[in-house]
Design a protein around this nucleic acid. Structure first.
Lengths: 215, 215
DNA sequence: GATCGATGTATCGGCACGATACATCGACCT
DNA sequence: AGGTCGATGTATCGTGCCGATACATCGATC
């Protein structure tokens, strides 16, 4: 999930981790902040996969048993997306499978980068998300009416509040879908989001299986 | 977090894991289901800590290299809470620290077992939760008005919806707090929720600070 | 000139998750 | 009689995220 978010942000401009973390918090809706314990491993994976590069050419001073306080410089590390990374991002952003909307967290990230997603894919994702949440709602409704008498007030309140939340989410999604169906000009929206056309690669001949990256 | 939920359920009656999982899904609000990958390790920890016991007296047939398909019986395992477990549960359920409301998941579980929690502790937890969510709301508000112009429609919608959600949660909590402050007899409510004195009074003996509770 | 808070990179242990394997049982179909 | 299918049931594995923490630099304030 972070993979998409990080690539999306770096696709905008290079950054170091600290900045990335702040922007990430914005993207994820403001409340769910990302921790360094997720961010740096994720960057490491992306780097290993060849999707990002760093400056600071491996200035990793090992010395684990020699100089006690480790006075080796630890400069800023700027992460930059590669061509493969941009490719990967475009690929991720154009997928509409269940994983795109079954997980709420991932869905939020997808929504945050909707301007890079084709209009028909946007619609499919929104509708898929609505279906998922509707199913949750029905399950919740059933459970609530089934156990209405047997549970204490607090559990009931919790479920009632949860039900109202999913209900609100369904309505919210419906509004988004409606305004998506009307032209509803999503403001500006860069043209890199070609509609369902495989786009025949505007540039960067995809190079099907060039796994040359593996060292 | 699971620790409390499991102890709480087993405090009701012994169960095996499968049943536990189903009940857990109810307790957690209906939408967040718990997976076996969390449940069984959690039960293992609780067993190691002496909070639960199992029947099936270590019928663990090792044979990892002998009989290929492992035909050893794998019977049902019933988990039962111990005296120490009940003690632990009572302790967990009477704490009102920040960890009780800063994490939304844990708060939900706490709420689900509120009938085992003393009235004054209930109030403290609800108010703490409200403070936490209010802070989130303010942060979100600030971020929204700060970036209103610079972000695309989807991100904005996401943040707006998030803001409305936390706003609704604040109002919901306020209602709970109000009805808690009025007598608002939480239905029946078993007497095991004595502040530290077992069942001093039928209702609302606020029992001033007297921090007798610490062991 | 020292401390303090923001900025900044990075790891560690722990917990929860999804996927999966293994196993039994009743029901319904053939 | 056999078959398979779905619910029940216990359990592990690899992965990913998190909180806490360590280490490090820099600017401002005192």
């Amino acid at each position: 999930m972070l993979e998409l978010a990080i690539l999306g942000l770096l696709n905008g401009s290079p950054m170091h981790g600290y900045e990335l973390r702040k922007q990430l918090a914005q993207v994820l809706g403001g409340l769910r902040s990302i921790s360094y314990g997720s961010l740096y491993p994720a960057l490491k994976r992306l780097h290993a996969a060849g999707y990002v590069t760093t400056d600071e050419p491996d200035r990793r001073t090992p010395l684990p048993a020699d100089a006690p306080p480790l006075t080796g410089r630890r400069g800023k590390v700027v992460y930059t997306i590669t061509a493969e990374g941009k490719e990967r991002f475009a690929e991720l952003v154009s997928q509409a499978g269940p994983e795109a909307y079954d997980d709420g967290g991932l869905f939020g990230v997808r929504l945050a980068f909707f301007r890079h997603t084709a209009a028909d894919v946007r619609l499919r994702i929104l509708e898929g998300r609505r279906r998922t949440v509707e199913r949750q709602r029905e399950g919740l409704r059933a459970s609530l009416s089934r156990t209405r008498e047997r549970l204490d007030r607090y559990t009931l309140e919790l479920q009632r509040h949860g039900l109202e939340s999913v209900d609100r989410e369904v309505r919210w999604l419906s509004e988004l879908i409606d305004s998506e169906r009307q032209g509803a000009d999503p403001p500006a929206s860069d043209p890199s989001a070609g509609t369902s056309r495989p786009a025949a690669a505007p540039r960067t001949t995809p190079g099907p299986s060039t796994d040359r990256s593996r060292s």
